[in-house]
Nucleic acid binder design. Structure first.
Lengths: 109, 109
DNA sequence: TCTATATTTCTATAATATTAGAAATATGGA
DNA sequence: TCCATATTTCTAATATTATAGAAATATAGA
């Protein structure tokens, strides 16, 4: 994962409503949730919800597919895997003066 | 780490200049870097740099201490450890319909 | 004490993000 | 086709964040 992509994931999750949505979808697991059900669960107006879902989707943190009249959203764990790798590679390497080429874990993870 | 704290870490790193600063400090390791050296390395005006360092500091991602006329900044790996735990706890649980109480790793990490 | 260096705080401007009503689009069923 | 439901897009107002010059503060050394 490159820098820009990581920043978009960080920005997507760095907002209370969106983090709530994302965590709800994580709890919902593979079956996901319809947009309307998310809005009901969290008490978010449809237009506002749609805006945030788009942000999450653009960052690749969620995916969606249509089922009848509903759009079912799910957390994208593939993106999260790559994102966590990015974080550990970029926040744990180079600690204690180690070369950034060494692949050993640093102080933080 | 609670929700609000995690959001402040996410927001601190969700900005290109700040992510650059943070990654530079990670590479600098335990000895850290003076604010001026960071500004020189990244070509950031002093006032702008100070603004971003404050954001990073408020989120707990960096710490600083004075050495003579310089303020030495270092990455705070303790915060990053806690932050990574928060992420894995909140993005990996509940996958495949598992109860959120199970502590097994999910699909993403 | 005076001066230079290092950095922050103050301030204003510019840029970006968030909110939500209203209108538009898509689907399914009578 | 007509209607109800589900959701998005459009729009405009509001709020938040980023930028950087200028002034202020802190430290060290002559």
């Amino acid at each position: 994962m490159e820098n820009k992509k990581a920043i978009s994931v960080l920005a997507a999750l760095a907002q209370e409503t969106r983090l709530d949505i994302f965590r709800l979808l994580v709890r919902a697991g593979q079956e996901g949730m319809a947009a309307g059900a998310i809005g009901d669960a969290l008490g978010i107006p449809a237009a506002t919800l749609s805006f945030h879902l788009k942000e999450l989707k653009n960052a690749g943190t969620v995916r969606c597919h249509r089922e009848g009249r509903s759009l079912i959203y799910r957390a994208d764990f593939g993106t999260m895997t790559a994102f966590l790798s990015f974080l550990t590679e970029n926040c744990c390497q180079g600690v204690n003066g180690e070369s950034s080429r060494t692949k050993k874990r640093g102080a933080c993870c």
